[in-house]
Design a protein around this nucleic acid. Sequence first.
DNA 1: CGAGTCAGCAAACAGTTGTTTACTGAATGA
DNA 2: TCATTCAGTAAACAACTGTTTGCTGACTCG
Lengths: 203, 203
Amino acid sequence: MGVRQAQKQQSRRALLDAGLRLLEHQNLSGLGVREVTREAGMSPAGFYRHFRDLAELGVVLVEESLASLHGLVRGALAEQAEAGELIDRTVELIAGHVRERRAYVRFLARERHGGVQPVRAAIAAELARFADEVAEALGAQPESEGWSAADVRMLAELYVDHMVATAVAFLDAAGPADRARIAATARTQLRLISVGRRHWREG
Amino acid sequence: MGVRQAQKQQSRRALLDAGLRLLEHQNLSGLGVREVTREAGMSPAGFYRHFRDLAELGVVLVEESLASLHGLVRGALAEQAEAGELIDRTVELIAGHVRERRAYVRFLARERHGGVQPVRAAIAAELARFADEVAEALGAQPESEGWSAADVRMLAELYVDHMVATAVAFLDAAGPADRARIAATARTQLRLISVGRRHWREG
DNA sequence: CGAGTCAGCAAACAGTTGTTTACTGAATGA
DNA sequence: TCATTCAGTAAACAACTGTTTGCTGACTCG
């Protein structure tokens, strides 16, 4: 890649980073092109060399947000571990991800039901792919013996919803004690679901 | 209440209704005072006779949104019914509420993690009160024999989170078939949690 | 080297915004 | 009845907004 392209990529990244930084404290629909370019140290017109819209920038941020998560959870689910240990590890994973990628997680939570349709659609699509992956991993586990595909999928959705809720709770945690409490709650809830799953047949 | 006060209340209501109508398709942070007054058929300056801020209007909408829900769920939980029937009734209740109060529910989902701090705080506080109520109702049930208060509270939070997730899913339902699918999923998930609760002690 | 490409800029465009001001006229209550 | 209150108004304010325009100057490549 030539110097030209590299410089362009750098500017593009600066715009994305500026956007993400600003979006930590406000909505995408409340964001302005001028605001982003100002934060990125660029003239307003320059924005249009990279994105048609702020919505387009938003969709790129969605993709970046969820790309890392995919690998993360895929790895966690692939591990063959005892159920209790897996739960602890999963909650720790979520906590770590929120700590390291706080801005991305906040952005996702904000815009999941936000006012910008293309961004909302992108998030919904990614979360659905997510549930697919989880469902596939669950189906491969011995505990899913005798479960219909629909029921496995339902279980996967419950897990994904719970994961999102937990991540959001971590986001708003007040301090270490609060984080510990949230982690404990999440673990207990997962354990409850796990117990229900084990005794599913007996009703 | 005199004619004067009545007219003022009417204008205030017009502003709230206009805001709610506009918020169905956009964020609170993207809303403007002029936009609301235009929709309400009022001059911009008139807004300030009723609210200091758009955030203030938003907080009022939050209170209105959750006021109806409180009575609704309180009634549902008070009923002494068989577990399976209670689940069906609860899901139906949520579906009905989303149908009748669509704009309010959408607003809550949007602003729960939106960019306006006071509104976010108001929603969080109301949802916490909600969880308290649910926890109290759960604690009174015979199935909670031997459960610690913390565990009951954790269960209540799980139910509230699930209720919110279900309501949001109903919001985006494409048609009757989609709604039926969402309802079936929600019921099964609730049943799973219920099974887990029943077999909690045995691990 | 020299012609061409193109990322980023400054300036201008016509709108929009939030908020304050002084006002009007209907409801109020002594 | 008549002075007072006050919800709603029209107008003005400066400060923004998104987007287009023509331009410049550094990179690209034959």
